[in-house]
C-alpha cells in the first residue's frame, strides 16, 4: 500500500522539475518550442531577460583582443538559434572595453568586438540587417572596481534586443 505512493511522489517531482525551466540552454539547445511573448516559468519568451538568463546575452574578450574564444562562440551559437526562432526581433550589439586603455582607442576596440560578434551571428545564419552595432568604449562598465576580475567582466559585447 505504501509502496504505490512512491511512484506518485516521483512523478510529482518530475512535473515540478519540468515546470521551473531554469538553467542556461535548457530550452534552446534542445530546440524545444516556445512562442514569443509566452511565459515560460518566470521569464517571458523572447525577452531580453530570456536572452540573458537562458541563452547568454554577452561574450567576453581578452585584453586588447577582439577574437572570439570558444566559450564565446558557444554563446553566440545559442544566440543565433534564439534569433532564428524569434525572427521578428532586431538587436543591437554593444561593444565595450575595460578602463585600462585610452578613450578613443577603446571606442574603436569596442566597435571591433561588437562587429566580431555580429559577423559570427551572420555566419550562423542570422540576417545582417537585423543586427546593429554600437561601441561604448570604456564609458559603461558593467562591474565597478580597478582589478582584473572587474576588467575581465567589462571587456564584453552585449546583445540587446531593440
Amino acid at each position: 500500500m505504501r509502496l504505490r505512493i512512491l511512484p506518485v511522489i516521483a512523478l510529482l517531482f518530475l512535473v515540478t522539475a519540468c515546470g521551473t525551466g531554469t538553467g542556461t540552454g535548457s530550452k534552446y539547445s534542445t530546440g524545444a518550442p516556445g512562442t514569443l511573448g509566452e511565459r515560460f516559468g518566470s521569464v517571458v519568451v523572447g525577452s531580453q531577460r530570456d536572452l540573458a538568463v537562458n541563452v547568454g546575452d554577452r561574450v567576453f574578450f581578452d585584453t586588447d583582443q577582439w577574437s572570439l574564444k570558444s566559450e564565446a562562440r558557444d554563446v553566440l551559437k545559442r544566440q543565433a538559434v534564439f534569433l532564428k526562432r524569434h525572427d521578428s526581433l532586431t538587436v543591437t550589439i554593444e561593444g565595450h572595453a575595460d578602463e585600462r586603455g585610452t578613450r578613443e582607442y577603446n571606442l574603436a576596440l569596442g566597435e571591433r568586438r561588437a562587429n566580431t560578434a555580429k559577423d559570427y551571428l551572420v555566419s550562423q545564419g542570422v540576417s545582417a540587417n537585423r543586427i546593429n552595432t554600437i561601441s561604448y568604449g570604456k564609458e559603461r562598465p558593467a562591474v565597478l572596481g580597478s582589478n582584473p576580475a572587474a576588467w575581465a567582466q567589462n571587456r564584453r559585447s552585449v546583445t540587446v534586443i531593440n
Binding site: 578613443e104 566597435e111 562587429n115
Partner: peptide, 24 residues
C-alpha cells in the same frame, strides 16, 4: 561611428576617425 575629431590649424577642416564594419 565617427569619433576623435580635431580641427585643422586653419579651421577649414576636421580630421576624425570613422569606424565601419569594425575598422576605424
Amino acid at each position: 561611428m565617427t569619433f576623435a575629431p580635431r580641427f585643422s590649424p586653419d579651421g577649414k577642416s576636421v580630421i576624425m576617425s570613422l569606424s565601419h564594419d569594425g575598422n576605424a
